[in-house]
């Protein structure tokens, strides 16, 4: 317990490192471009527009306001998959730093997840803007509960990413395998199709898939305009805490030999 407290204190001391890595990521990416940081906003906007056009024109013409269903779910998925695929390699890709400088190693993983999270926030601003402009409308509790859903999804994602980033140091196959896994995972999560379609097998897979519950919460808030039922909210909370606790513990165990394995 004292170990966890001292680790948290140390991370707090290194908060400026995490922030400056996030800033380096978000600003450095678009340096030398005319529009600069504005791309952080334009990218999700065009991504959203393309997805809406593709899926409403080709697939789901007859579902009411399908574009809302699509965009409120797909942006959190991109946060999840982007964090995992980039974050799982973050220790290995900074091996020079890890081998030669002392700092809390979580900082590298956290900065990736945080910068993806900020991208999600920007994307959600665009999503909310689109819902507003098209007149689909909101409920007040959507805004009240959104921070909560963001928070639990952030914890869930951070925990998994910490775990995979640490294991990836020992078995480099992990980040390659994750790339393939995530590709399939998206199609086993109700993001472009509705939760209630498909065979019994698909239904079972979806209910075993943890991401279903997080994406479902976003759908409830913005598409169905209902408060997510307490059971699935509870699952989200439990998943978030278990993921963060287990992921972080594994990370702390495995990090002792990082410098030798890299």
């Amino acid at each position: 317990m004292t170990k966890i407290v001292s680790r948290l204190k140390e991370l707090y001391d290194y908060r400026y490192m995490i922030l400056s890595l996030v800033r380096r990521d978000l600003r450095g990416k678009y340096k030398n471009s005319v529009l600069g940081v504005f791309w952080n906003f334009l990218n999700p906007l065009f991504q959203i527009i393309i997805y809406i056009i593709v899926f409403t024109a080709i697939l789901y013409r007859d579902i009411d306001a399908y574009y809302v269903y699509l965009i409120v779910g797909i942006m959190p998925w991109f946060f999840f998959s982007g964090s995992l695929s980039e974050g799982s390699g973050s220790i290995v890709s900074h091996s020079n730093m890890v081998k030669k400088i002392y700092f809390p190693r979580e900082a590298l993983v956290m900065s990736v997840v945080l910068s993806r999270f900020i991208t999600l926030l920007i994307a959600y601003a665009v999503v909310i803007f689109i819902i507003f402009v098209t007149g689909f409308g909101f409920t007040w509790f959507a805004f009240a509960l959104l921070p909560l859903i963001f928070a639990v999804q952030f914890m869930f994602t951070l925990g998994l990413t910490l775990f995979f980033a640490a294991v990836n140091v020992y078995y480099r196959d992990v980040s390659h395998a994750l790339g393939v896994l995530l590709m399939g995972w998206m199609w086993l999560t109700p993001i472009v199709y509705m939760r209630d379609i498909g065979s019994d097998i698909l239904q079972t897979i979806m209910s075993l898939n943890p991401v279903t519950y997080f994406i479902g919460a976003y759908h409830d808030l913005f598409y169905y305009k209902v408060i997510p039922n307490i059971g699935s909210l509870g699952i989200c909370f439990a998943l978030a805490f278990v993921s963060l606790a287990v992921g972080w513990m594994m990370f702390m165990r495995l990090e002792r030999r990082f410098a030798e394995e890299l």
Binding site: Y16, S20, L21, R27, K31, N96, M97
Partner: peptide, 21 residues
Amino acid sequence: AGFHPDMTGRENVYINASIYG
């Protein structure tokens, strides 16, 4: 450590020093 080639020397000083805590 942490130098970003497209950022200025001044910006990189901040990134680099932050990694040293």
